[in-house]
Amino acid sequence: MVVAIAVIRLRDLFAVVMLFGIYSLLSAALFVALAAPDVAFTEAVVGAGISTVLMLATLAMTSRHERRPAHKPWLPLAVVTVTGAFLVYGTLDIPSFGAPDNPVHTHVAPRYLEESGEEIGVPNVVTSVLSSYRGFDTFGETVVVFTAGMGVLVLLGRGRRRRGEEEGEKRDSQGEKEGAA
């Protein structure tokens, strides 16, 4: 939480990115404490690793400092406080933390835990659910990642090419001038 506040307060974007990596790593540790080691691995590698590298690459291509915001922050702060208060009010009807009779635990999860060992033969239930019972989800995920990768390539590639063409034209005109001289 403290790290999150620091991420908001700081204006030096480089420090923001570093703190964001720390925040991801801390949430990975929290996932270990909540008995979810698979998620913790993914968060540590992907959230703390790849995201940080991507953000650093963006900073390298753009600027490092943030300007002072022009508006007073009172309106957003009020909106956020009101929304948060409603959400806190909403949690009062949710089953409390760690309760075994939470509706989440009474639907398909017991079946996964009881039968997947025999049906799939992999001791890690997360793996067998991910790649067998919900294989189409994982397929959809790879499609999303592929589409995003294509989008990034199209966005960045077009800029490069246009700049390359402009430089090429400049070079051509310079060549003509030199030829005329």
Binding site: A36, D38, V39, T42, E43, V46, G47, I50, S51, L54, M55, A57, T58, M61, T62, V104, H105, V108, A109, Y112, L113, V125, V126, V129, L130, R134, D137, T138, E141, V144, V145, T147, A148, G149, G151, V152, L155, L156, G159
Partner: peptide, 27 residues
């Protein structure tokens, strides 16, 4: 419960993909 873990594994990876797209837009 393994089911939320699976969903969040998927969500983390998709989240990074969308972050990459957003950062590319920023560039």
């Amino acid at each position: 419960n393994p089911l939320p873990h699976v969903l969040i594994l998927t969500a983390i990876v998709v989240g990074v993909a969308t972050t990459a797209l957003g950062l590319a837009l920023v560039v």
